[in-house]
């Protein structure tokens, strides 16, 4: 292997690079204003959603389409409490409430396997959406609510903190005993149970933990949207997108979902405002190409090419 590669693969180099990126990102609002910040904010949000999804579904193989429910719960927390409490507290409450919902849902439904779990969680989002809608129209005679205004810089820092927390959690779960338990559930749940793993507990707690970040990001992003209603808050796209971004990026490594989320959100920001349907069209096409030709996602593909590149170099020398 050549020297550039050994530097890139060096752990302390990677950590250093991460620290530099983080500092650069954190100080960004001091240099820039306006649109670029907003664009980054959306990227952060989708990375949070995608990585949270991967924390649970990526390893266990239970395909959750409940992200939009947890996200929406966060959004509504912000809409209901945003003007009563400091924003950091509101975000914390949003995270906790989402997590509790996830805990309940998990305890009730994680015995459903395969496709049933996916459609159940999907139905759950729609049920919550329509119940909220019905409640607002019939009980409160209104539709939607205003959300308290928060300065862009603050939103940015809060979202960045959530992002860092999500990535750290995902990283440490992956490297821990807990991560191994999750993986073995994904491989063969029955065998995992007979190996002494409390599969129900591991699944439910992980599901609840992953919902923390989704709820928190919903609570903070809501303040940017000014107005929300059940259709906006519980939009099923927030369930679909993380799944698709994770699959596009590849789930073998933590970097995969991150890159998938960044790539798609960037594309969305470029095309989304002017040609939203073109963006969604391209999204669909890329998705099908990815599922057909990139079984391990973009990162898997790059890895394969990278390895092949080195082999060629080795052969040349």
């Amino acid at each position: 292997m050549n020297s550039v590669a050994s530097i890139v693969l060096n752990r302390s180099f990677q950590l250093g690079l991460l620290a530099v990126i983080l500092i650069a990102l954190a100080t960004l609002p001091l240099h820039y204003q306006g649109y670029n910040i907003v664009r980054l904010l959306n990227i952060f949000m989708f990375v949070v959603l995608t990585v949270s999804w991967v924390i649970f579904s990526g390893s266990t193989g239970y395909m959750s389409l409940a992200s939009a429910a947890f996200f929406g719960v966060g959004i509504y927390t912000s809409a209901l409490l945003g003007d009563k409490l400091p924003i950091a507290v509101v975000v914390g409450i949003g995270a906790l409430v989402s997590s509790c919902v996830a805990f309940l849902v998990g305890a009730l439904t994680l015995r459903l396997r395969g496709i049933y779990f996916a459609i159940f969680t999907f139905g759950l989002v729609e049920l919550i959406k329509h119940l909220t809608l019905w409640w607002e129209i019939n009980m409160e005679d209104r539709r939607g609510r205003l959300v308290v205004y928060v300065e862009n810089d603050i939103i940015f820092w809060v979202m960045l903190s959530i992002l860092v927390a999500t990535l750290l959690t995902a990283y440490f779960i992956r490297r821990s005993k807990w991560g191994l338990a999750l993986q073995s559930i994904g491989e063969n749940e029955e065998a995992a149970a007979h190996m002494g793993i409390n599969v129900t507990l591991v699944k439910v707690i992980t599901f609840a933990v992953s919902a923390l970040f989704v709820g928190a990001s919903g609570a903070i992003i809501a303040t940017r949207w000014t107005y929300i209603d059940p259709g906006i808050a519980f939009n099923p796209l927030y369930s679909f997108m993380p799944v698709l971004m994770a699959i596009f990026g590849g789930m073998g490594r933590l970097l995969g979902p991150v890159i998938g989320a960044i790539a798609f959100t960037y594309l969305k920001e470029e095309l989304g405002t002017e040609f939203p349907e073109l963006y969604m069209l391209i999204f669909g096409i890329i998705l099908i190409v990815a599922i057909l030709y990139m079984p391990n996602g973009l990162v898997g593909l790059i890895q394969r090419l990278w390895i092949r590149g080195f082999r060629r170099q080795d052969a040349d020398t």
Binding site: M63, I247, L281, G284, I291
Partner: peptide
């Protein structure tokens, strides 16, 4: 295959719907 085809139909959904919108 069930998982993969489910994802592929998501892709189809986006493609057909947005072609129709265009």
């Amino acid at each position: 295959y069930e998982g993969g085809s489910l994802i592929a139909t998501f892709g189809l959904m986006f493609i057909i719907q947005n072609l129709a919108i265009i």
